[in-house]
Nucleic acid binder design. Structure first.
Lengths: 120, 120
DNA sequence: AGCAATAGTATCAAAAAGGACAGTATCATT
DNA sequence: AATGATACTGTCCTTTTTGATACTATTGCT
């Protein structure tokens, strides 16, 4: 970007990946869910429900299904008592971790500089 | 992330910047608008309207106002005939370019590998 | 005075997203 | 046979976001 060799047609063409990305990670809780699963590697439904302050069961289910359908998450069902379901990142989902990390770093430095994270 | 020195409390604390980021760039057209302005450095209202296929005037206005309020955009009014308004990135907005670039690269490689950009 | 082009605003409607809440399935344990 | 915990599903409702459409303001030019 900037004083570059790219043409206007290039800018136009690159909209497609940009729009698709927005469509896929634009949900209200998506990047947060991905962040937790990336951090803990494996998360159960109930764990996510407790961590995501304010989300409802049905919304969490919907967001998880979408992330699963878009290829980010793997869903493993354990038929125990009580039943257990574990969510983890697929290989594709893991390829997104550096982007996630990059976004988070920017946000902490530029967007929320006054937000002090005592654990950092 | 992964086999790290971070604690669970750290993971919890970092939600705040993650949520805030989502709130700020989550709009349906936001990253696309930022991408165009980053690419062309300066864009007029009408230029964006033509590039963003399917957006309406009123929606574009709202998204631009929000990006301006969140500090990404500078809005310069030229009182000519016909009047002209130019949008450009603020310094803060420019700090977001690498993140944008990173997102786009990932999307082109991983999300839309079959999408061929002939200008690349 | 009327027209044209840009960049809006205003109002209402539609669609999408998210939430509330009740109900279901499983099955070991008591 | 009832209980309890987890992980749902289904239905309806509210809120938020986006879109459609019409209208306004500016001002040089003819």
């Amino acid at each position: 970007m900037a004083d570059n060799k790219f043409t206007a047609a290039d800018a136009q063409a690159r909209c497609v990946p940009m729009s698709r990305l927005q469509a896929v990670i634009g949900g209200k809780w998506k990047i947060l869910i991905l962040w937790y699963i990336a951090f803990y590697k494996v998360q159960r439904f109930g764990e996510l429900l407790r961590r995501l302050d304010g989300i409802t069961q049905s919304t969490l289910t919907k967001q998880l299904r979408e992330l699963e359908q878009d290829g980010f998450l793997h869903r493993e069902i354990y038929r125990e008592v009580p039943s257990r379901v574990e969510y983890s990142l697929t290989e594709f989902g893991q390829s997104f971790i550096p982007v996630l990390q990059n976004m988070l770093d920017w946000s902490e430095k530029q967007l929320c500089p006054d937000f002090v994270n005592p654990y950092k």
